[in-house]
Amino acid sequence: MTLLPYPSLQKPARFWLACLTVLLLIPGLAYAHPHGWIDMRVRLILDDQGRLEGLHQSWRMDPFYSLIILEELGLAEGEGGLEAGLDQLGGEIRQNLAPHDYFTELQVGGEKLALGEVTEYTVMERGGRVEFIFMLPLETPQPLSDRTLYYKVFDPTYYLEVVHEAEGNTPLDDALVVTGELRCSTRIVPADPDPERVMEAAMLDITDEAEPGLGRYFAETGEVTCD
C-alpha cells in the first residue's frame, strides 16, 4: 500500500483529482518515483542521565502538496477556520503513520529500538508550506554515552522522498541536533542506492505502488556518536 501521510483518506474526489493534475503538470514527475518530498529536521532529546528519550521531528511538505492541502482545507473551511482544519489534519497524519512506526527506524549497537506512541504533535502553515511537528518517544529511554545511534526516516514505498533540510547538497546546521549534557558528534550520510534499485524506482509510474521497503535504499542516515 502506498501511504500518503498527510491527506485524509476521506477527502472528496476533487482532492485526488487535484493531486493527479498537479503531478501530471510537473515535468518528469508522473513517470518516476518519488512523487513528492519532505524536508526534515531532527532533534534528539536526552534526559539528565544521558539517555535518549525520543526524536523531535519537523517535516515540511513540498510546495506542490502543501498548495493542494491548503486549498482543500480552504474549500472545506468551517467552524474554526484553517487552524481547526490543520488540527484535524494532524490527527489524520498521526493515525496514518502509527502502523508504520512513523516512517522511522533507530538502531544502537546493531539492535533496532522500539518506539512509543506519538501523543504530542501539531500541524502548521509556514512560508506557504504545511509542516507536521511531532515528538516520537522511545518505548524505553536508551543510554547514548560511548555509543552510536543510527536512524533512517523514509516512506517504505518511496512515493515520498524524505531528506534533511539542506542548502544545495549541504545539510543545514539545525537539520540534526542533540540536546543534553553529553558531547555528541553528528553527521548525515547521503543515500547510495544500488543502480538496480534506481532503475526499479525509475520504472514506477504514478499508478504503480512499489513493494514496501524500496524507500529504505534511498534514505539518508543520521549518525550520532556521544562521549
Rank of each mutant, 00 (worst) to 15 (best):
residue 18 A to Y: 11
residue 179 T to C: 02
residue 115 L to A: 04
residue 30 A to R: 14
residue 22 V to L: 09
residue 165 E to F: 11
residue 66 S to V: 12
residue 18 A to R: 10
residue 57 Q to K: 09
residue 85 G to E: 02
residue 85 G to K: 05
residue 114 A to K: 10
residue 175 A to P: 11
residue 173 D to V: 11
residue 25 L to Q: 14
residue 21 T to K: 14
residue 176 L to K: 05
residue 141 P to N: 04
residue 26 I to D: 11
residue 5 P to C: 03
residue 79 E to P: 02
residue 21 T to Q: 15
residue 226 C to I: 09
residue 101 D to G: 03
residue 54 G to F: 02
residue 105 E to F: 06
residue 142 Q to C: 14
residue 188 I to Y: 02
residue 22 V to E: 14
residue 99 P to H: 01
residue 65 Y to K: 13
residue 105 E to P: 15
residue 9 L to M: 13
residue 130 V to W: 00
residue 92 E to R: 02
residue 165 E to G: 12
residue 204 L to H: 02
residue 25 L to T: 15
residue 195 P to S: 01
residue 39 D to H: 07
residue 154 F to Q: 03
residue 18 A to P: 07
residue 155 D to Q: 00
residue 62 D to G: 03
residue 39 D to K: 08
residue 133 I to P: 06
residue 200 E to S: 06
residue 89 L to H: 04
residue 148 T to M: 03
residue 206 I to S: 13
residue 135 M to G: 06
residue 89 L to C: 04
residue 105 E to Y: 05
residue 173 D to N: 14
residue 12 P to A: 10
residue 106 L to R: 06
residue 43 R to F: 00
residue 154 F to H: 07
residue 39 D to T: 07
residue 209 E to L: 12
residue 66 S to Y: 05
residue 182 L to M: 04
residue 53 E to S: 01
residue 166 A to S: 14
residue 124 M to I: 15
residue 151 Y to I: 07
residue 76 A to H: 11
residue 156 P to T: 04
residue 151 Y to N: 08
residue 215 G to L: 03
residue 209 E to G: 12
residue 56 H to Y: 11
residue 36 G to H: 12
residue 74 G to A: 10
residue 134 F to R: 00
residue 52 L to I: 10
residue 201 A to W: 05
residue 60 R to D: 09
residue 173 D to H: 10
residue 202 A to D: 15
residue 96 N to H: 10
residue 66 S to F: 07
residue 210 A to C: 08
residue 199 M to D: 11
residue 85 G to Y: 02
residue 93 I to K: 01
residue 12 P to C: 04
residue 25 L to N: 12
residue 199 M to P: 14
residue 171 P to T: 07
residue 43 R to H: 06
residue 219 A to R: 00
residue 112 K to Q: 15
residue 41 R to K: 07
residue 184 C to F: 05
residue 7 P to K: 08
residue 225 T to F: 00
residue 55 L to W: 06
residue 196 E to V: 14
residue 13 A to G: 15
residue 95 Q to H: 09
residue 107 Q to Y: 09
residue 130 V to Y: 01
residue 211 E to C: 10
residue 168 G to D: 05
residue 31 Y to L: 15
residue 103 F to M: 05
residue 149 L to S: 04
residue 26 I to V: 15
residue 33 H to Q: 12
residue 194 D to L: 08
residue 88 Q to Y: 11
residue 32 A to I: 11
residue 68 I to T: 09
residue 151 Y to K: 06
residue 220 E to C: 08
residue 96 N to F: 08
residue 69 I to S: 05
residue 37 W to H: 05
residue 74 G to M: 08
residue 213 G to P: 01
residue 227 D to M: 05
residue 86 L to N: 01
residue 227 D to C: 05
residue 215 G to I: 04
residue 218 F to A: 03
residue 136 L to S: 01
residue 198 V to Y: 03
residue 19 C to V: 15
residue 4 L to C: 15
residue 205 D to Y: 09
residue 143 P to R: 07
residue 172 L to T: 10
residue 72 E to F: 02
residue 49 Q to H: 07
residue 144 L to Q: 06
